[in-house]
Write a protein that binds this DNA or RNA. Structure first.
Length: 441
RNA sequence: CGGGGCAUAGCGCAGCCUGGUAGCGCAUCUGGUUUGGGACCAGAGGGUCGCAAGUUCAAAUCUUGCUGCCCCGACCA
């Protein structure tokens, strides 16, 4: 993409309504614009990041054996009346009437709908276990939206639902998701810590929140530092690995303030005690037959008896993640996106003038990178070099190729954000990028 | 919903107290000079001062009501 053809409205100044760095940065770098309190438009740059995150999440759901489908944003009130949540959910649910004065709602979550789909189509234990998920916009009419996309009313969520024949099988599904969450957040370069959680209005008794540490986080958290050292890089979905995963974490103390227990916490060595804040980026629940029972979802077990399947649900706040990642990775001078989700893989800063050598070198390099699927963003505007430097440090594309008039024919300045500039040849840069992004050719 | 604050050009703000021609910086457009860490000169465009009512000869400015937005709290992915 050439910047001269792109839509990237960068703000030099910070809008006064943004109070935390992720919100400020997302506004300044032209990722989002607010439409109403807690409701945002995603501009091209932000949209790319969002879609890339969505894909990382999707890929790992698929690896875990979950199957993607898509349910609507608007739901009928009927099924919510069946489960009893039409009244329980309260004012957070946005209720709508159509022209026939039928009661509809903008879905805040999808347990009812997925249970309906399940009960209408699955009748036998032979079809279990089953994990279904979708990535869809939700609406919760929060009392107080804040912090940009971190806590908004309309948000994109990945929600998975598991159906199993009995509790033991359901716990295995739960552990699978637990593991897939660790892998997902690992790919996003986030250190996510699972913590035992309250189950809230969704109900049930086995539940974990996945939290990343950040001073601006909304939850207070207490933990044993050693939990941060648990290795998540080489996890696989073997039965041993899945079965052991929760135990690995339960060896070390970690809790949000709701579940915090002072006595337990004080048994940790003083040096290992950590009290800080965190951002919740995922939440998983096992809730048994809460919905399958109230909504009369029945399957035949291997004795020919009708039973209610055991269910769980597993959410990841996809639209919250860009902000959470910024909170975790921005260091007051520059932003560097994780390679797995960066909006462009490499930036080319053309410091030359129309038609001069640097300009030509930039275009050639640009075309080459496009052909290699290294998705470059070329700054071909006539802005001053210094303004280009500032803009690109703000946007956070991990690598920059800087092409000015200083260097010889096959010399280019190459910078990885946060590190010193190097002078490299074209081939060296391309090999480096191919390796960084694991592109073979 | 309780408490606090804000609303003037795309963004950041001044003007309001003490009523009388709507301003500054950035951004935008035109022309020119520039070009390695947010360049310079000259010119231009852009506003029902959030909405409504009231007071007044006269309201961005004073009064009342409404709406929107932000912050703190209770609630949450």
């Amino acid at each position: 993409m050439k910047l001269s053809n792109y839509f990237l409205p960068i703000l030099k100044e910070t809008p006064s309504e943004a109070k935390i760095k992720s919100h400020q940065l997302m506004l300044r770098s032209g990722m989002i614009r607010q439409s109403a309190s807690g409701i945002y438009s995603w501009l091209p740059l932000g949209f790319k990041v969002l879609k890339n995150i969505e894909n990382v999440v999707r890929e790992e759901q698929n690896n875990a054996g979950a199957i993607e489908l898509l349910m609507p944003t608007i739901q009928s009130s009927e099924i919510w009346k069946e489960s009893g949540r039409y009244d329980d959910y309260g004012k957070e649910m946005l209720r709508i009437q159509d022209r026939h004065e039928r009661d509809l709602l903008y879905g805040p979550t999808n347990e009812e709908l997925i249970t309906q789909i399940f009960r209408d189509n699955i009748k036998s234990y032979k079809n279990l276990p089953l994990m279904l998920y979708h990535i869809q916009w939700k609406f919760r009419d929060e009392i107080r939206p804040r912090f940009g996309v971190m806590r908004c009313r309309e948000f994109l969520m990945k929600d998975t639902y598991s159906f199993d024949i009995d509790q033991a099988a359901a716990e295995l599904s739960y552990k699978k998701m637990f593991l897939s969450y660790l892998k997902t957040f690992e790919k996003l370069e986030l250190k996510a810590i699972p913590m035992k959680a309250e189950t809230g209005p969704i109900g049930g008794d086995l539940s974990h929140e996945f939290i990343i540490l950040a001073e601006t986080g909304e939850s207070e958290v207490y933990l044993d530092k050693n939990i941060l050292d648990i290795e998540t890089k080489n996890l696989d979905y073997s039965i041993e690995s899945v079965n052991g995963i929760i135990e690995k974490y339960s060896k070390f103390y970690s809790a949000t303030d709701e579940k915090h227990n002072k006595d337990d916490f004080n048994q940790i060595k003083k040096n290992d005690q950590m009290h800080t804040r965190g951002i919740e980026i995922g939440h998983i629940f096992y809730f048994g037959d809460k919905y399958s029972k109230s909504m009369n979802a029945l399957i035949n077990n291997n004795e020919g008896k009708n039973i209610n399947p055991q269910m769980g649900s597993y959410g990841i706040g996809v639209s919250r993640l860009p902000a959470a990642i910024i909170e975790a990775k921005y260091n007051d001078e520059f932003m560097k996106w994780p390679l797995s989700i960066t909006p462009f893989k490499v930036a080319i800063l053309n410091l030359g003038k129309n038609g001069d050598e640097a300009d030509q070198k930039s275009l050639e390099f640009y075309n080459l990178l496009c052909n290699l699927k290294l998705e470059p963003l070329l700054d071909d505007t006539s802005d001053s070099p210094s303004s280009k430097f500032k803009n690109f440090d703000l946007i956070g594309i991990p690598f920059q190729i800087i092409i000015g008039s200083k260097l010889k024919k096959d010399e280019y300045e190459f910078k990885e954000i946060g590190k010193d500039k190097k002078i490299l040849s074209k081939d060296e840069i391309i090999n480096f990028l191919k390796e960084a992004y694991k592109i073979d050719q």
